[in-house]
Design a protein around this nucleic acid. Structure first.
Lengths: 98, 98
DNA sequence: TTCCTAGATTGACAGGTGTCGATTTTCGAG
DNA sequence: CTCGAAAATCGACACCTGTCAATCTAGGAA
């Protein structure tokens, strides 16, 4: 564990914003399609968060760069899903960094 | 766990800054007096962080308001120490909020 | 009282951040 | 090809944040 971990810095900065934590919560479901994996496209998130489309795009870029969510492009949609492994790792690393 | 926890907001914001995480690490010791509890006064922290005195005062206020460190005033010194219980609780709450 | 010291407070500055409207890009459908 | 929809990017705005120099406050020592 380096004294100044840039990766922890990014994840912690991503998590520090309440809107982005709400987005992570929303990605836990429920989704529209009950049988599918817990995925939401940007439009769904925009509707749930009641924020403008550019704002959602901005937050999703930060969450993705931090590695906390993953996105798969399918047609003109981008399906976002939580990266549970990265989330668990980040909590673990954080405990060691405090 | 409220949807928007102001307390988690404060602790997370406090932790998000790398300088404040370094201060928390410094408070783990070693201190000057080997036999004493792990306490540092503002001047000690200022020296270790190599930052100006007002900057340290600013960071200590944020960490104290977040409850992550406690301070006891003794004479003209303020001795800061980690609030281990609050730190553990914050990690626990965070895991539930993600 | 008058110094001196530790720390808090103030004021200012540069840089970062969340938000939105407008525009652009990137797809699929006809 | 053109058209429409989804998302990214751009530009601007208000607000916040980390930092420091200067000043103020509080407490001990003389």
């Amino acid at each position: 564990m380096p004294a100044h971990d840039p990766s922890l810095d990014r994840t912690l900065h991503a998590i520090a914003d309440p809107t982005r934590r709400r987005i992570l919560q929303a990605l836990k479901g429920p989704t529209r399609d009950a049988g599918s994996v817990n995925c939401l496209c940007a439009g769904d998130i925009e509707e749930r968060m009641k924020l403008s489309q550019p704002t959602i795009s901005h937050h999703m870029a930060i969450l993705t760069k931090a590695g906390l969510v993953e996105a798969t492009k399918q047609g003109q949609w981008r399906w976002y899903r939580r990266n549970e492994r990265a989330i668990r790792t980040m909590v673990k690393v954080l405990r060691g960094a405090l």
